[in-house]
Amino acid sequence: MTMTTALATRDPWSVVPSLGNLDAYIRSVQAIPMLEADEEQALARRLRDQQDLQAASKLVMSHLRLVVSISRQYMGYGLPQGDLIQEGNVGLMKAVKRFDPDQGVRLVSYAMHWIKAEIHEYILKNWRMVKVATTKAQRKLFFNLRSLKHQFKGEADDAHVGRAALSEADIHRVAAELDVRPEDVIEMETRMAGGDVALEAQADDDHDHAPVAPLAYLADEVHEPTRMLDAARRDWLSGQGIASALEGLDERSRHIVEERWLKVNDDGSGGATLHDLAAQYGVSAERIRQIEVAALKKMRKVLEAA
Results as ranks from 00 to 15, higher is better:
Met1Ala: 13
Arg10Val: 00
Asp11Lys: 01
Trp13Ile: 05
Leu19Pro: 07
Asn21Lys: 04
Ala24Pro: 02
Tyr25Asp: 06
Ala37Phe: 02
Asp38Val: 13
Arg45Met: 12
Asp49Gly: 11
His63Val: 02
Leu66Asp: 11
Val67Cys: 00
Ile70Gln: 11
Ile70Asp: 07
Gln73Asn: 12
Tyr74His: 06
Tyr74Gln: 02
Met75Phe: 13
Gly76Tyr: 12
Leu84Cys: 10
Gly88Val: 00
Asn89Glu: 13
Val90Asp: 02
Met93Gln: 08
Val96Gln: 13
Lys97Gly: 09
Val105Phe: 14
Arg106His: 09
Ser109Tyr: 14
His113Ser: 13
His120Ala: 05
Leu124Cys: 15
Lys131Thr: 01
Lys131Phe: 08
Val132Leu: 14
Ala137Ile: 00
Lys140Glu: 14
Lys149Leu: 08
Lys153Pro: 00
Asp158Gln: 10
His160Phe: 15
His160Val: 15
Ala165His: 10
Ala169Asn: 12
His172Pro: 00
His172Glu: 15
Ala176Tyr: 06
Asp179Arg: 15
Asp184Trp: 08
Glu189Gly: 02
Arg191Trp: 10
Gly195Gln: 13
Asp196Gln: 03
Asp196Thr: 04
Val197Trp: 05
Ala198Cys: 04
Ala203Met: 02
Asp204Val: 09
His207Asn: 00
His209Lys: 04
His209Asp: 03
His209Gly: 01
Pro211Lys: 00
Val212Glu: 08
Val212Leu: 05
Leu218Tyr: 15
Ala219Asp: 03
Pro225Thr: 10
Pro225Asn: 03
Pro225Met: 03
Thr226Gln: 10
Thr226Lys: 09
Arg227Gln: 02
Ala232His: 06
Arg233Thr: 07
Arg234Glu: 14
Asp235Cys: 00
Ser238Arg: 00
Gly241Glu: 01
Ala245Asn: 06
Ala245Pro: 12
Ala245Cys: 10
Glu251Arg: 13
Ile256Thr: 11
Arg260Pro: 05
Lys263Arg: 05
Lys263Cys: 01
Lys263Thr: 00
Asp266Tyr: 05
Asp266Cys: 07
Gly271Asp: 11
Ala272Ser: 15
His275Phe: 01
Ala278Met: 07
Val283Asn: 01
Ala285Ile: 11
Ala285Gln: 12
Glu286Met: 05
Arg287Asp: 10
Ala294Gly: 07
Leu296Tyr: 11
Met299Val: 03
Arg300Ser: 09
Arg300Leu: 10
Val302Phe: 07
Glu304Asn: 11
Ala306His: 09
